[in-house]
Structures are given as structure tokens and as C-alpha cells.
Design a protein around this nucleic acid. Structure first.
Lengths: 180, 180
DNA sequence: CGCTGTTTTGATTTAATTCAAGCATAGTGG
DNA sequence: CCACTATGCTTGAATTAAATCAAAACAGCG
């Protein structure tokens, strides 16, 4: 799904991971969010505000906008929920901006891992379906810097890593690295 | 207005400039947007997602949420407009994240000035009511860096500056500096 | 006019990028 | 089944952009 594209449905992610991104005129990419189960793709307004791609195998549930609009008129709770989810999107984008603007490399990576851990149901072996390149384009860093931060967090025993996964070993240490 | 505060009204800025910001646990501040005439403060959900402060003298128009909810049920256009404005907020926050993540100091400042110019009705003497500190906290830079970027843009004849204002002298040059 | 706080400019330091190798891991074909 | 290659990840050394430290210029205001 491309940025600016007109879409007649709103989709809810059921399983898998989707990356939402913006492209700069010079070709650089900024990933503005990784969407997981329960997250919304799209809104009632006519155009997509970010491009969307599947990171791994993804299932979505698509709602025609017209039916959602009707549901909003009929059920107050639907309107409230829709507003809630849009507000959550804005909130997350602002949170990202705050981290990009005010944290160093280690802080950004630690924040990202804490966020992943928070969303995951599992306590250990938290999946990381996206590549280092994706993480770099999300955190506004280069892949080498991501790699160095991972190494530093492993050395300080804050995390352990597997192939496409990690686990939090020392939550306090990780939170400290995230700068809180 | 504090982040997380519960507010019973949604407010539309009528005149003046409002800064919306997030505080990090360690006290650092990230301004996530400057709101001007027509912009929305708040949403239907129960809590404020960012703190808000007046930058200069501000007039707002406050709507009780309950009345806005009723209006959404009765008039399809109100719902669409509300959704539009929330989507615009998310869009802007994502745009900010993209600039913070992927542009250098000069690019961020040039983008900021172009954005200001775009919102302003006037062609020259575009007002800059916020301080350098505010701009720095918006662009994720220090005030010295903002100052240096302003100087560079003046030297390349892209802009001219007055006290609390600026004007675009060479739009192409400014756009080039913004990295597009 | 002289204070007070903001902005600009300069010199130095630091963090992240860039450039350049090495290392795995998985996939391919002999 | 094992070399061989491609791809992505990690590590190291050098460079660069922005932060930091420090001081000078410039407001606005009593």
C-alpha cells in the first residue's frame, strides 16, 4: 500500500507484522511504526498517510469504510473506539519523534526493545521479525550502530539474543539504558 | 494543559501559537508540534496525549466532548471532519519523525521554515513567535545548532531574518537545503 | 545608559557515520 | 555431502556532524 493511495477499507491486523513508512524525496526511508495484532491500517479520510508493507506473513481483517461510518452513527462505542485508535496512532508517532529527537543510539535501541517486550505476550524469546535495516530505518540510525547497541546491551547482560528474537535478562538495566 | 490530563472539551485554536510537547523521564523536552489557527487540541478519548502551552497570546474555541459526539451521530460530515483532523495530527507527527530520523541539522531547519512559510498567509515577514529554545526542542537540536543553520541559510541568501520573523528570499535554495 | 537574558560565534570534544573487513547462516549445485 | 556463493550481521579504524564549553554581541527594559 503506497502513501497517498486511496483505499476503500480500513484494515485491522490479525496476525503478523506490518511496517508503516514514509519515503523522503531523496529516497531515504523512515519507518514510522511496526503494526501488530489489533493495530489499524488506514482511517476514514480518503488517503493513506504512510506506505504499508508486510514484514512477515500477515493476516488482516478489512472493513469497508462506509459500513464503519454507519456503525459510528448507530453505536456511540464504535466512534469512541475509532477515535481511541487514531489517537493512539498519533500518540505513538509523537512518542517516536520524542525518542528520535532526544535520545542517543543506545537509548533508542533499548526503548525499541522494551516496546517490543511490552507488546509481546511471551516473557522470553520475544520475536523480532524485522531486519536490522528495518530497525535502523525506524530508529533513524545505521545498521552498524544498531549492531553495536545490541552488542553493548548483551555485554551489560541486559538482553540475550537468538536468531530473529531476543529476551530481556535485566529489565532494570534495559530501562536504565533507555534513559528513564 | 498536562500530558495525561483528563479534559472534557476539545479546543480549536482561533489565533496565536500553541506548543504541544512531551517530557522524557529525565526532564528533556520534545515539542511535537506548533498549533495555529484551525488546529485541534485534544480528542474524544479521555486523556491528553501531549502537554500544551501557549507560545504567545492565544484564543481558543472550546467544544464540550459530549456535544461533539452527538454532532457526529447526527451529521456524517462532522465525523468525517474530526477523523480528518486526527489523521492530520498523526500525519504531522509521522512527518516530524521522518525529518528527525533522516535529515541533518540544516535540512531540519530548512524544512521547519518552509512549513512555517506554508502555513503563513503572508508572503514576507513570516512570524516566528517561538524562541530558539522552542525550535531546538522541536527539531531535536541545540540552540547553537539552530543559530548556525539560520546563519548558513542567510549567507546562502535563502532567507532573511528580522526580530521574531523571517522571509524566504530564495525558495529553491531553501527547498534544496531541506533535502528535496 | 547599564542591566538581564537571549542569540550568535568560536574552539574543542564526542557520538554516530562512513568505509572496510571479517563472520556467520542459509541456499545452490556439483 | 560438502565446497561455493549470496546475504545479512558484526566488528574495527577513520571521518564528520553535532554537542559541549566558553565568550562576545545583541536585544529588550527599567
Amino acid at each position: 500500500m503506497e502513501e497517498g493511495e486511496s483505499v476503500a477499507t480500513i484494515q485491522v491486523v490479525v496476525s503478523g507484522c506490518v511496517r508503516a513508512f514514509k519515503m523522503l524525496p531523496d529516497g531515504r526511508r523512515q519507518i514510522v511504526g511496526f503494526l501488530g495484532p489489533g493495530d489499524l491500517i488506514g482511517h476514514l479520510s480518503d488517503r493513506q498517510i504512510a506506505g504499508c508493507e508486510a514484514v512477515d506473513a500477515v493476516e488482516v481483517c478489512a472493513f469497508p469504510k462506509i459500513r464503519l461510518e454507519n456503525a459510528c452513527s448507530e453505536e456511540r462505542a464504535v466512534l469512541a473506539e475509532l477515535d481511541n485508535m487514531l489517537a493512539a496512532q498519533a500518540h505513538r508517532a509523537q512518542e517516536l519523534a520524542a525518542n528520535l529527537g532526544r535520545k542517543n543510539a543506545l537509548g533508542r535501541v533499548a526503548w525499541f526493545l522494551l516496546d517490543r517486550a511490552g507488546r509481546s505476550a511471551r516473557r522470553s524469546e520475544i520475536p523480532l521479525p524485522m531486519s536490522r535495516m528495518d530497525i535502523a530505518d525506524f530508529l533513524g540510525l545505521r545498521i552498524e550502530t544498531i549492531s553495536r547497541a545490541f552488542s553493548a546491551l548483551k555485554k551489560s547482560a541486559a538482553i540475550a539474543t537468538g536468531p530473529s528474537s531476543f529476551s530481556v535478562r535485566d529489565h532494570g538495566e534495559l530501562a536504565r539504558a533507555a534513559g528513564g
